[in-house]
Computed example of a mutant assay.
Amino acid sequence: MPASRSQAAEGPTFVIPLNDGYGVGECVDGGSSTCGKVVADAWCEAQGFRRSASVGPADVETTGSISRARSRIAVTCAP
């Protein structure tokens, strides 16, 4: 099945811990979406990508159910 145009414009999604050293945890705990975008952009750039395409809570599967993990965040980077 071919990727949609929006999927092709996005790179990989990384699940990173909130205490990664980039300040992601502080942004998430503070509730600032602007802060989260800035930190996600910096994280993606440090990984060799242009910027972040999206950032949000990570869905983590545990024992057959999907839950939102407070200890991790999902960052999708743009190529």
Rank of each mutant, 00 (worst) to 15 (best):
T13P: 06
T13M: 08
T13H: 02
T13W: 10
F14V: 12
V15K: 15
V15T: 15
V15M: 14
V15R: 15
V15G: 13
I16L: 15
I16N: 04
I16D: 06
I16F: 03
I16G: 00
P17S: 13
P17K: 11
L18I: 14
L18P: 04
L18Q: 12
L18T: 13
L18K: 10
N19S: 08
N19L: 10
N19D: 14
D20Y: 03
D20H: 10
D20S: 12
G21A: 02
G21D: 02
G21F: 07
G21Y: 01
G21Q: 03
Y22G: 11
Y22A: 12
Y22V: 11
G23I: 05
G23Y: 00
G23N: 09
G23W: 01
V24Q: 14
V24C: 11
V24E: 15
G25H: 06
G25I: 07
G25L: 08
G25W: 05
G25D: 09
G25K: 09
G25A: 08
E26Q: 12
E26K: 11
E26G: 15
E26F: 08
E26H: 09
E26Y: 10
C27M: 10
C27W: 03
C27N: 09
V28Q: 09
D29Y: 12
D29H: 13
G30A: 12
G30R: 10
G31W: 03
G31Y: 01
G31H: 06
S32I: 03
S32Y: 01
S32M: 01
S33H: 06
S33V: 07
S33C: 03
S33L: 10
S33W: 07
S33R: 11
T34K: 04
T34G: 09
C35V: 03
C35R: 05
C35N: 02
C35E: 01
C35Q: 09
C35M: 03
G36P: 03
G36H: 05
K37M: 02
K37G: 04
K37R: 13
K37F: 07
K37E: 11
V38Y: 02
V39W: 00
V39Y: 00
A40F: 05
A40W: 01
A40L: 06
A40P: 00
D41G: 05
D41I: 04
D41V: 02
D41M: 05
D41E: 11
D41F: 02
A42C: 10
W43A: 05
W43V: 11
W43S: 05
W43H: 04
W43C: 00
C44V: 01
C44F: 00
C44M: 04
E45K: 14
E45H: 07
A46I: 01
A46R: 02
A46F: 01
Q47P: 04
Q47K: 15
Q47T: 10
G48A: 13
R50N: 13
R50T: 14
R50P: 07
R51S: 14
